[in-house]
Design a binder for these strands. Structure first.
Lengths: 148, 148
DNA sequence: CTGCAACCTCAAGTAAACTTGAGGTCAAGC
DNA sequence: GCTTGACCTCAAGTTTACTTGAGGTTGCAG
């Protein structure tokens, strides 16, 4: 069955449904994150499913991904056609992996920080004194211990 | 006891110890994140404890805080004087709260996402159909459910 | 006391992610 | 059939967080 007229929405509607500014959506189109077709009068018409697509963009952004990374993720979705359930499941799982690894990183950071709260040392400089003969002195004493 | 000469380090040393570029440190000073005193020849001299201070900056940045937020956090530390253990404990705990809340947010996002992977729906549009008569339809269908 | 790495300032450039403004067109309801 | 809100393009501006470059000074090792 062909697309029904209802599946095509103007940019203002997409904006309201996603909470994104119209200018942001146009910018995303420039960056290749969404595609639109044009009416006779040169106005953009988006697929209803682009609401979901832009929702994904927003979530991924909250995770700290740049627009280029997000575009790469979105490449797994069909271009200009409504993605099906399987498409979304695949990409959602990939996002979940991102989230999981971020939680792990934060948890590690928190543990490190906990260890150091006890001695009031953030850079582990002091701790390095206790763990004598460590690699810390050799490598410097930045936050590289706490950070990844 | 007064400061010994050894407690004052030039910017290059601070750079090596923190992994930050010299230019970045100067920029941070402009933004009020660190303070320095000057030699007769107008060169910056930092406290050794500024290594720790800048380590904190880097960790907080990884958490997504902007420099302005970080400056606010750092306001709890004494200006231009070596902070003591208690100072660092207080501020580390505040950072820990940040981390905890970020982990919670991510966990919530993950759970929401899991719920939706099942139906391939990211914006919860489809789920909204199942939960008939919901507030979802009223509020629109952006990712606001998943995002904070 | 000299050489040169390390330091200084200040202006301008960069990248990401948008927004704003000017100047103009489209389309849907009355 | 006209008005008006929604839409269009393109250039320039904004913010954050720095880096780069030019042109000059300092300070320590030998």
């Amino acid at each position: 069955m062909a697309l029904s007229r209802n599946d095509l929405i103007p940019i203002g509607v997409l904006s309201r449904r996603t909470g994104l500014a119209v200018s942001a959506i146009r910018y995303y189109e420039d960056r290749g994150l969404v595609t639109s077709i044009r009416t006779g009068g040169n106005q953009r018409r988006f697929l209803r499913s682009d609401i979901r697509r832009l929702s994904f963009v927003q979530i991924a952004q909250k995770l700290g991904l740049g627009l280029a990374d997000i575009a790469r993720e979105l490449a797994a979705l069909p271009q200009g056609r409504t993605p099906n359930v399987m498409d979304w499941q695949r990409i959602s799982r990939s996002l979940r992996k991102e989230i999981d690894s971020r939680i792990q990183l934060l948890t590690r950071t928190r543990n490190k920080l906990d260890e150091c709260i006890g001695c009031g040392c953030l850079s582990l400089e002091r701790c390095a004194l206790y763990n004598k003969d460590d690699r810390a002195a050799a490598g410097g004493t930045g936050p590289r211990y706490v950070l990844d």
